[in-house]
Design a protein around this nucleic acid. Sequence first.
DNA 1: CTGCCGCCTGCCGCTACGTCAGGGTCAAGC
DNA 2: GCTTGACCCTGACGTAGCGGCAGGCGGCAG
Lengths: 252, 252
Amino acid sequence: MAYTVGQVARVAGVTVRTLHHYDEIGLLSPSGRTAAGYRRYDDADLQRLQLVLYYRELGFPLEEIAAIIDDPAADPAAHLRRQHELLTVRIKRLQEMVTAIEFAMEASKMNIQLTPQERFEAFGDFDPEAHEAEAEQRWGDTDAYRESNRRASRYGKDDWLRIKAENEDWGRRIVALLASGAPADGPEAMELAEEHRQIISRWFYECSYEIHTGLADMYLADERFTAHYENIAPGLAGYLNEAIHANAISRA
Amino acid sequence: MAYTVGQVARVAGVTVRTLHHYDEIGLLSPSGRTAAGYRRYDDADLQRLQLVLYYRELGFPLEEIAAIIDDPAADPAAHLRRQHELLTVRIKRLQEMVTAIEFAMEASKMNIQLTPQERFEAFGDFDPEAHEAEAEQRWGDTDAYRESNRRASRYGKDDWLRIKAENEDWGRRIVALLASGAPADGPEAMELAEEHRQIISRWFYECSYEIHTGLADMYLADERFTAHYENIAPGLAGYLNEAIHANAISRA
DNA sequence: CTGCCGCCTGCCGCTACGTCAGGGTCAAGC
DNA sequence: GCTTGACCCTGACGTAGCGGCAGGCGGCAG
């Protein structure tokens, strides 16, 4: 029912200093003190802290958080609703960045130059940045980050040569298939589409069927990608697109 | 091919001051200067800036970003891969927060008390926070935020009474249906399940069928929710769960 | 040649804490 | 009853990543 700073800090995942700070600026003052001056937090304080942390995660400055939380018109449910909306907006934003990255990856694999605008499109609409200095600083210690680091630096020259070789081998085979007149939704084409997906998954990122069909459509929608494939063999862009779609449908 | 600070700032969505700062700390120094001392950025600089901004968005401190980018072992593709992974990890994290919010919403609708641990679970695993002070401060001016604000504060006492009334009306009807012996996967039960989903969507958040079935499972998995429904009528928790699943399947 | 906008370099300010320093407190164990 | 170590307190200064302003030069359209 009553907690010390240390206990609150541990359960909420913040530092004691942070709680001191919130007390100083009046954002979250413990409901009481012991005779010796120790801060005592109760359940209501924890609830408030939770709100504070969520809004902080969402990037609001502390002062504004105080205003939001102390708004008498906003009951708990209203906060939840607002946070839910903000979160979904942010997820959408990150997903756009992911798409942009996937786009850039495809482009880089094919040596396609991006225009400056495209470079920053992912940030474009509503402001470019976001900070998260502290959190991500600590992130440096998380498994996820280490894992990412490890994997990102794992590929040596040899690997790159292998990737290139795999890609070229795949390219030769699909060109041959196209030339042979085999249908784009036939088993051989679908098999090559699947292989294409697995090459991406193995060497780059987990490429779901959904992502894969997205890529396929991009190959047609973006003329530079179209040109890349058409340069290899006329009709290849459309052929690959169809094969990928057929493959995705058949595996679903 | 060559850009001034202002131009770069505009296309990248940062301020001139930021570019000055990056120049000062050596994170991104323009490749040249004019005779008059004007900074001149070229395409390579833009490319580097893009990397910087992505890593910044991902929360890395600028110093670390410099180290990452200047790492000779990391080619462009490696950066893309790393960013892709980091982004997906972050999206997962945000989605967990969303789930936690949805959980809290359900709990609050039913007056269920959360334990302190549950309060902060969403932050738990890897650190609690994330900042984004600047970005989200500016966010204060975006449509999304205003919209969110508007909707969040739109409900007055009357609305709450209506929500409560709707809920109770729905409750009475499903209890009656359960008592009548109608099957949980019958049309009436499914209709009530659908209504349940729409009440959430209308008043709280867009509740997809996927989310809805997730909620349904939670009603069974979490004993407090189970108890809530079982208190209304024995067997109701399981009945509702089944009805929601049946409804979701039939609409898919 | 005169605006006016854009660029330059300081330099001070701000937020949200981190990080001591210097000193009291509390429960456990001897 | 006294020590010990973990925990708490209050200043106070430091830091990152810019924002913002002052004071002054540069460039080009009219």
